[in-house]
């Protein structure tokens, strides 16, 4: 262990010298030389298919991810997200279709790929009786190119637990450690499978910031998530998946605008105000009941609200909790899959 530590330190010093050799003080050069940007996609999935027995888990999935993109995959449990990601990681062979990742056919030459990608798996625990530092050191030893353990511990804010056994970490800390391990080889492409599940809001922010830093460095991130907020906040593009298919793909605002050109006016249900009256209000295109709430979809909020208030005043009532809302990714998701995403 000590020997490896020294070797690392030596490497670090040498690199610093090289970096400052140019005349002006430069930050130490640490990063893996990213392969030349040819403009080719970092991930290219072409008609991927995978069945487990009778169940067609992935049924013809095609998409591309460009360099420096944060690409999110949303979908209910069992949608085929994890299987898709694992085919791209070289962990599973596709029944048919091609997964080109960093210019490598992931199905044919997974070993060449593994050196250059970072992978976080859902529900993977670690050596329970090793400490955080030991596990990161261990994983580092598997790669030709690695970053210093201490830097990774800092990046994921695991400093306080560096000598704690992984079995004694909280759920959130284990999750952070599993993300930390994706960084040991300074990967060009990082796969995260529901990385913020179980994280508290602060740790989640920390992780999002980390992902953004990786993007700025020119790295690519592909993630699956259960969290709409995470997809809206973090992802450049998202794909919504269900039953092994990609239902919709694009930036979050594209997805919303494609389906929901209208805004919604929401208020608590008023007894006696029926749908026929509501539909007849100016501009209203659609009336939806949701949990004791009515949503009126309209391209013209001003005249619809005017009509609504006139109608309720005539009834001697008043719309309570009146709000105007733009559709969210969640609305798109609900509309596409017919179910809500639950954590």
């Amino acid at each position: 262990m000590i020997m490896i530590g020294r070797r690392l330190l030596r490497g670090y010093r040498q690199r610093q010298v090289t970096a400052s050799g140019s005349g002006r003080p430069a930050p130490p050069v640490w990063h893996r030389e990213l392969s030349a940007d040819t403009g080719a996609p970092v991930i290219e999935a072409r008609d991927l298919r995978k069945a487990y027995g009778q169940i067609q888990a992935v049924d013809g999935v095609s998409f591309t991810v460009a360099r420096g993109e944060i690409f999110g995959m949303l979908g209910p449990n069992g949608a085929g997200k994890t299987t898709t990601v694992e085919m791209l990681e070289g962990l599973r062979k596709a029944d048919s279709g091609v997964a080109m990742v960093l210019g490598i056919d992931a199905g044919r030459d997974p070993d060449a790929l593994k050196e250059r990608i970072g992978v976080q798996l859902q529900a993977s625990s670690l050596y329970p009786r090793l400490t955080v530092t030991e596990v990161i050191d261990l994983f580092g030893s598997f790669y030709q190119h690695r970053r210093p353990t201490e830097e990774i511990i800092e990046a994921l804010d695991l400093g306080e637990r560096r000598d704690g056994r992984t079995s004694e970490l909280s759920g959130g800390q284990q999750q952070r450690l599993s993300v930390a391990l994706t960084l040991v080889n300074d990967p060009e492409l990082i796969f995260l499978d529901e990385p913020t599940t179980g994280l508290d809001p602060q740790a989640r922010r920390l992780l999002w910031d980390l992902v953004r830093v990786k993007k700025e460095e020119g790295r690519t991130v592909m993630m699956t998530t259960h969290s709409m907020e995470e997809a809206e906040e973090l992802c450049d593009r998202v794909a919504i998946m269900d039953h092994g298919h990609i239902l919709e793909m694009g930036t979050v605002s594209e997805l919303i605008q494609r389906r929901f050109k209208d805004l919604s006016i929401r208020f608590d249900t008023i007894p006696g105000l029926d749908d026929a009256r509501l539909s007849a209000l100016p501009g209203v295109s659609r009336v939806v009941h949701e949990d004791g709430e009515i949503a009126l979809y309209t391209p013209d909020v001003a005249s619809s609200i005017g009509g609504l208030l006139a109608a309720t005043t005539a009834m001697g009532a008043e719309p309570k909790n009146l709000a105007v809302r733009r559709a969210t990714l969640e609305d798109v998701f609900l509309e596409l899959t017919g179910r809500a995403l639950r954590d």
Partner: peptide, 14 residues
């Protein structure tokens, strides 16, 4: 069972 073997197989470790 704890997917450690699977996690290892995502590294270049043979």
């Amino acid at each position: 069972e704890k997917h450690i073997l699977k996690r290892l197989s995502a590294t270049p470790l043979n």
